[in-house]
């Protein structure tokens, strides 16, 4: 495995008295697809949000591309990063959400160029040109000037993917991106993700789509109750699980 893009060591996260992550250690290789599976409430999404510092962690260390997330280390001391530094770190990490979170007051293209223009200070015309390309890449050339409310869920989620890609991220985080979609719209989003994986994008994917995990993932991580139960290539974890908890979870999921 090449140098890991995302590396976690003993990551713990508490919300009040509830500990959601109880020591997560894992590595997501550069150019690889890592799928996080597990029952709801197992901490998958929280872990994903820790990677781009939408949540801060209480213990352990997280690195993205060799840089510590949220802190700077000098000797044995940790210094919190300034807001601008945190923002700069996040600009290199793309994230797609379950509820799309498109900006409803902006058209598809305005959604896509917002961050390149505002964060990267890219020339607006250049951003629009590149934004059109990104929207074309997800198959939405004809929806460039539509407002999100006029798009289907699948189209909205593809705009959200284009919006994240427009920042040229080093890694893409997907947080249950098909869970809010009607069944017939799931495939169009998964197709875009499949293509992205084929192009060598580093991806960390929280999902319930077992078929996607089996086909696309290089590494599958099964989480339960804030810990990693089992991890490995999909053929091992999904087809020959060693742990009882993995078997139970897969049994529940595959029954459908």
């Amino acid at each position: 495995m090449s140098e890991p893009m995302v590396k976690a060591e003993g990551v713990r996260k508490r919300f009040g008295r509830l500990e959601v992550l109880k020591g997560i250690s894992l590595e997501a290789g550069t150019g690889e697809v890592t799928c996080l599976l597990g029952p709801s409430g197992s901490g998958k999404s929280t872990f994903l949000r820790c990677i781009n510092h939408l949540e801060n962690i209480n213990a352990g260390r997280l690195w993205v591309d060799g840089n510590l997330v949220g802190y700077r280390q000098a000797g044995n001391k940790l210094y919190e990063l300034r807001e601008a530094e945190i923002a700069r770190g996040r600009a290199q990490i793309g994230m797609v959400f379950q509820s799309f979170n498109l900006f409803p007051h902006k058209t598809a293209i305005e959604n896509v160029i917002e961050a390149p223009v505002q964060v990267k200070r890219m020339n607006k015309n250049e951003a629009i040109g590149r934004g059109r390309e990104q929207l074309g890449r997800v198959g939405l050339d004809d929806k460039v000037d539509e407002y999100p409310a006029r798009l289907s869920g699948g189209q909205q989620q593809r705009v959200a993917i284009a919006r994240a890609l427009a920042m040229d991220p080093k890694v893409m985080l997907f947080d249950e991106v098909t869970s809010a979609l009607d069944p017939e719209l799931v495939q169009e989003v998964l197709d875009v993700m499949r293509e992205l994986a084929g192009e060598g994008m580093t991806m960390v994917v929280v999902t319930h789509e077992m078929g996607f995990a089996r086909d696309v993932a290089d590494e599958v991580v099964l989480m339960d109750d804030g810990v990693i139960v089992e991890q490995g290539p999909p053929a091992e974890v999904l087809d020959n699980p060693r742990e009882e908890r993995t078997k139970r979870f897969l049994g529940l999921v595959l029954e459908h």
């Binding site: 923002a87 996040r90 959400f97 979170n101 961050a115 994240a164």
Partner: peptide, 14 residues
């Protein structure tokens, strides 16, 4: 919606 803030922050906006 708080998701709007999440999305903007995730894109690197202050």
């Amino acid at each position: 919606d708080e998701g709007q803030t999440d999305a903007a922050h995730a894109l690197g906006m202050t």
